[in-house]
Every structure is written in structure tokens, then in C-alpha cells.
């Protein structure tokens, strides 16, 4: 059964990928890219990677598609025919693919439990993380504690992306003098949409908080929560008008939030150093090692969530405000 699902999904993925290469309408290509990542999220679920699937669905299908559409809105939506026959490209690709296939010949078979990958480092995570760190979700333990430093870097990466997009596109606050009621970006004619959005928004934010604080026990965590929170703000901005959103979440506030998230993460690490541990060693933060780990993971996940939310929203602002500025 699992094999059947796998094969179906992989076939769909191949069809989508080929369609992307052929299609000329960029709008369709962007939508297909969204479908591609949704399909791969399904595949991740069938391969037990629920956290990854969650992230891929939220990021690849959600935010990346939104950003691409926003960028399309700022430019052309049709691709020109390439003027040359890309034979060289085909050759490069075939060679690379052949080398890779050659390399996978020696890999252990898919799903093989005796592969070395499952026997060296991973067993400790599975067998001892609950005693050493606590959360039943091993992914959270590794992400926030064993490899917490990677996650700090990842938080800075998304922070950097936010900074870069703002530096490149700039956000101009046009609220000076203009009243909210004249905002043309609000979807005035779509009453149903506006009502439903207002109805759903509290639940979206609530769900984001659930994902944020339930990450220890199930799939989820700061990153996914931040993305969901940001998508709530994006819906708000789409239907109720940018100016209103900008009033609720001003740019300066979001910049401070993004910064605060990174500093919260780094600060947790520094606090551990002050209390005599290594950087990001949460064990020294609490009365017992487990309590310390719990507190540390809570804080760093919060930092991740806040930074991701603020950076994603800033990026969206930068794209959506560009057109009229």
C-alpha cells in the first residue's frame, strides 16, 4: 500500500516537473511549482517526515508561492521562447544525472533498516533524547538542542533574507495623510471574502500559537508557527487592505520583532554561558538538566517563531508595496 502511494506521488511529481519545463505562462508555472511542493509534502508524510512535510506545505506551497505571485505582479507574466536549442544544457544535465545514478548504486536500498545511516548517530537521538531532553518529538529535540546551533544559523538566514528584501525593495510607509477608507488595495467588492477572513483570522492565529507550543509533542514548532502567523497577516492585508495591516503591524514593530527573535535565541545561548555551560547548553538554565532543556527549547522556539513571522511579513510588505511606490 505504501509503495503504491509512493509510486503515485512520484509519478505526479514527475508530470508536474515536466509540465513546468514546458509551460510558458509564468503564472501557471508558479502554480505548478506550488503543486509540486504540495505533492512533495505528501511524499514526506508517506516517508514519515511529518515535520518536514508541515514545513514544506507551509513554506513551499504557501509563502514561496505568495512571494512568487507578488514578484510576478511586479513584472511580466509570460516567458519568451528561448532563442537557442539548449543542447549543451541537456548534455550537462544528463552527465550530472548519470554521475548521481552511478553514485546511488552503492547506497543501501530504500527503507533498509540495516543502512549505516541508522546505526551510528541516530540511535542515541531515538533512545536517549527523552531522558536527556524530554520532548517526545525527536525532531524537536535535535532541532532545538542537539543541533540547536544550526537552527540559530537558520533563524539568522531567514532574518538576513528579510533584511535583504527590505534593503532591495524598500518599504515606504504611505500612511501619512491618507485615510484608511481610501485604500484601493482593500477588496471592497468582495463582501463574503472580507467577512469570512475576519471570521477565520482569530482561528488562524490561534492555530499558529497551537503549532508553536505543541511542537514538543507533535509536528510543528517555531518555524511553522511563524509561517502560519505570517500567512494570517498576509490574508488580512489582501482582503482588508494594506494600510490597515500596516497600522496593525507597523514596519518598525516588525523589524524590532525580527531582531528580538534572533537576540532571544542568541541570548538563551549566552545565558547558558553565563551560568557556566557551553553556548546553547540549556541544561544549566534550570534546576535540573531536564527543566533547563525544557526552558531553553521553549525560549529558542519562541525566538524562531517571532523572527520567522516578522521576516516573512516584512518580505511580503516589501513586495506588495513596491508597485504603488
Amino acid at each position: 500500500m505504501e509503495l503504491f502511494i509512493d509510486i503515485t506521488l512520484l509519478t505526479f511529481l514527475c508530470i508536474t516537473a515536466l509540465a513546468i519545463t514546458v509551460i510558458r505562462k509564468l503564472f501557471c508555472a508558479v502554480m505548478l511549482a506550488g503543486i509540486f511542493s504540495l505533492l512533495s509534502a505528501c511524499l514526506f508524510v508517506s516517508m514519515d517526515a511529518v515535520d518536514v512535510a508541515f514545513t514544506e506545505a507551509a513554506v513551499g506551497t504557501g509563502i514561496a508561492t505568495v512571494l512568487m505571485l507578488a514578484a510576478l505582479n511586479l513584472s511580466h507574466s509570460r516567458e519568451k521562447c528561448p532563442p537557442y536549442q539548449p543542447l549543451l544544457a541537456l548534455l550537462v544535465v544528463c552527465t550530472t544525472g548519470a554521475v548521481l545514478v552511478y553514485g546511488t548504486m552503492d547506497l543501501p536500498a530504500f527503507g533498509d533498516a540495516t543502512a549505516p545511516i541508522h546505526h551510528h548517530v541516530a540511535p542515541r537521538y531515538i533512545e536517549q533524547s527523552q531522558q536527556e531532553i524530554g520532548p517526545p518529538n525527536f525532531v524537536t529535540s535535535i532541532l532545538a538542542s542537539y543541533r540547536g546551533y544550526d537552527t540559530l544559523a537558520e533563524t539568522v538566514v531567514i532574518f538576513t533574507a528579510g533584511l535583504s528584501v527590505v534593503a532591495l525593495l524598500g518599504i515606504r510607509d504611505r500612511r501619512g495623510g491618507q485615510s484608511i477608507t481610501t485604500d484601493r488595495s482593500a477588496m471592497k467588492g468582495y463582501l463574503v471574502l472580507r467577512v469570512v477572513t475576519k471570521l477565520l483570522l482569530p482561528f488562524i492565529f490561534l492555530f499558529a500559537l497551537y503549532v508553536q507550543f505543541h511542537g514538543d509533542y507533535g509536528p510543528g514548532g517555531g518555524f511553522q508557527a511563524g509561517v502560519i502567523f505570517a500567512s494570517g497577516v498576509i490574508i488580512h492585508s489582501l482582503t482588508l487592505g494594506r494600510d490597515r495591516t500596516l497600522k496593525a503591524f507597523p514596519q518598525r514593530f516588525l523589524t524590532i520583532l525580527a531582531t528580538a527573535g534572533v537576540l532571544l535565541y542568541g541570548g538563551t545561548g549566552l545565558a547558558a554561558m553565563v551560568r557556566g555551560g557551553n553556548f546553547l547548553d540549556y541544561s544549566v538554565l534550570g534546576a535540573t538538566a531536564l527543566a533547563g532543556q525544557h526552558l531553553g527549547i521553549f525560549l529558542v522556539e519562541l525566538g524562531v517563531g517571532v523572527t520567522v513571522f516578522a521576516s516573512m511579513t516584512l518580505m511580503y510588505y516589501a513586495f506588495s508595496y513596491r508597485k504603488e511606490a
Partner: peptide
């Protein structure tokens, strides 16, 4: 094995950051 999941979580973030820029 949870370790590849963690690595890919990080890589997804890196990917979307690059796309945005």
C-alpha cells in the same frame, strides 16, 4: 531516522530565503 528531517527543515528555510532574495 529523524536526523535527515532536521537537516532538511533547515535546508527548506535556506531555500525559501534564497528564493525571496
Amino acid at each position: 531516522n529523524p536526523l535527515p528531517h532536521v537537516l532538511i527543515l533547515t535546508a527548506i528555510v535556506v531555500g525559501v530565503a534564497t528564493t525571496a532574495v
